[in-house]
Design a protein around this nucleic acid. Sequence first.
DNA 1: GCGTAAGGCTACCCGCGAGTAGGTAGGCGG
DNA 2: CCGCCTACCTACTCGCGGGTAGCCTTACGC
Lengths: 221, 221
Amino acid sequence: MSEEVPRPAERAKRLPRAVRERQILDAAVSVFSRYGYHSASMDEISEVAGVSKPMIYTYLGSKEDLFGACIRREATRLLEAVQAGIKPDLPPDMQLWHGLRAFYRFVADYRESWTVLHRQAMTVGGTFAAEITDMRTRAIELVAALVVSAGTRKGLGEQAEFSGAGLSAALVGAAESLADWALDHPDVSDGVLASWLMNLVWLGFNDLVEGEIWKPSESDD
Amino acid sequence: MSEEVPRPAERAKRLPRAVRERQILDAAVSVFSRYGYHSASMDEISEVAGVSKPMIYTYLGSKEDLFGACIRREATRLLEAVQAGIKPDLPPDMQLWHGLRAFYRFVADYRESWTVLHRQAMTVGGTFAAEITDMRTRAIELVAALVVSAGTRKGLGEQAEFSGAGLSAALVGAAESLADWALDHPDVSDGVLASWLMNLVWLGFNDLVEGEIWKPSESDD
DNA sequence: GCGTAAGGCTACCCGCGAGTAGGTAGGCGG
DNA sequence: CCGCCTACCTACTCGCGGGTAGCCTTACGC
């Protein structure tokens, strides 16, 4: 049988480093998103990647390094996706709406990325939690800027700024939570999700800005 | 020195089982809340509890059992705290407000409990995640019932019910996120937190119910 | 006082998984 | 056609931490 088998590329061999790194990161994100940082084993990641364990260590370093690389890649993706969706010269509510749509589109398209970023990254003590918290803080501040901008534009200054940070934190949490909910309801489009949130909070903001506030009907307790 | 030391309870010894179980659970909640399930070691828990490791195993079983016991105790505490705060014969918005206040009071008083329930319980694959998700779902359904009740009371039926589940998920997420935010701002009282949320969402709901809806100003894209 | 059961401990086992040593193979310059 | 560098693997080490075997000791009943 001197005939050479004509398909030597079934299990692709001898690929350039960049390609392998991509494969490894893809596998790592997938495994981390399913099991979380601690329960994920390097053996399983290497298996999913179709690569042996030492490859991972030579290319991406330790488990923590690998996880960091995942986090950073997915965070960048998310950030770029949202920024690409925003049109900076629109009024605040439209900016928020477009940002939300882009966000939900991203979550739907890359659910593993979202899971790793949102759920798993907090479970690794130390650096990554801080990094994620930082990203989240920036998102909150961005939203707060929109809200305050809308507030001052309408003339209400002090109160909007005071409660702005808390409200924005709440809004970001609402958006995240709705994203998780949407994972179980894939038939609901990103436009509908964004609209729900806008209806929920923006009308609330609007009323606040107009000076209408809710307060307990009787001041018992 | 035949004189007996009158305070034999400095390093208390030979305590009844119920007391030890309490100490162990307290220590476990504290350690789990700091490090998460996987990174927490039984050795550290035993050290914090002031008790040796075998005690934990004889009294509370395996690590997973111990964590389960923590989750269940803290969940019960939270549930009872919120239920104690609710007055069932008030109108929906007041019920929600009282529930929120009780919730934020609990989070402030037992921040470790909250951390374990909210952050760490999801990181243990399987049963506990399901249990927590279940609790959360019940909370969402409860809120949804309030919202729909307020909606139908005002005459709007179909639309409120349709988006009710998603909106409630968002609201619960907002409440949780604001709870996390409040952990870093202990000077903000539970009443203020609850009021912020009410202003944010209830006014939004109100507008929805009244038929006023937000929509993108121009239907580009 | 003295048996006995319940409270409590020290000192160990052992599997799992992160990380590595050292060797093989295939392509490319010369 | 030959060396050699780089892609790549098999097969190991080793420490951490969950879990346990077996022993000590104090209080209390009789």
